[in-house]
Amino acid sequence: MKVLEVEGVYKRLGRRDIIKGVSFSINEGEIFGFLGPNGAGKTTTIRMLVGLIRPDQGTIKICGEDVVRNTDKALANIGAVVENPELYTYLTGRQNLNMIAEIRGVDKKAIDEIVELVNLTGRINDKVKKYSLGMKQRLGLAAALLAKPKLLILDEPTNGLDPTGIIDFREIVKKAAKATNTAVFVSSHILSEVQQLCDVVAFINDGQIKSIESIVDGQVKNEKETLVIVTKDPDMSQDIMVNMSVVKDIKREEDTFTVTAEKEAACDIIRELVTKGVDVCEVYKKHNQLEQRYMELVEGGKR
């Protein structure tokens, strides 16, 4: 079942077109990564998902409810942390959660469970003012998870978390997705985060989704890869590689080449060089696959 359906969404803020036609959907239990550089439109998209701003065109449906027309029904299925978790700093963590529980009609017992889950039991009765950024993140996550939503929306959620915090966070989100079949939408500009967490990744840049791909075993399927090759006879190497069909692009810096080639082409290139008598000193893949894909889609394959 589709939990979130986004269809042809456009948004203009001031004089700039921020979102230029975005469509995607998320299934139950799926962890959806939203990957893009700063200013790509990630946060604007999230604001539209949670009804903070209205799209100029297009529809957003959550569990079948239109976010613009049936805002409250749609929001009942969402738990969200937009940018930094902004909780009421003059209230305690528990008072913040109590408030949400009351609005959403959640049993107060659920608060203790969720607090336990995000590991805030010792500090839940302190004012949020006194929390560290990481604790605020965890409280924000607790607030989002409190009502056991169908869709969990997280905007750069590991900001301010320490390494243990990040690992804990990943466990919590994965557990939620698997145990309660919650769909999760995570925006991020951190590749490794998406790689380790998500089932599907959408690459967004300049207000458009460049590609949506599934991640299997932490990798995406790539058509190209970038190789770095160092040889003893650069002039000759260049001549050989330019004539190979698998090689798409070559850049040379003295005796070091950065070669963009078809996937799995490394063996062919090395064999070709070696048979033609070139001494190959060093060959390695410049990026792992997700990085490679990101560079292609977002940075136009440069670097």
């Binding site: 949670v50 009804g51 903070l52 409250d72 029904k73 929001l75 937009v82 940018e83 978790p85 009421y88």
Partner: peptide, 15 residues
């Protein structure tokens, strides 16, 4: 400022 409105308005209540 600080934008707690975001928390409030992402709850299922109409503005």
């Amino acid at each position: 400022t600080p934008p707690t409105l975001k928390l409030l308005l992402t709850q299922p209540v109409s503005r």
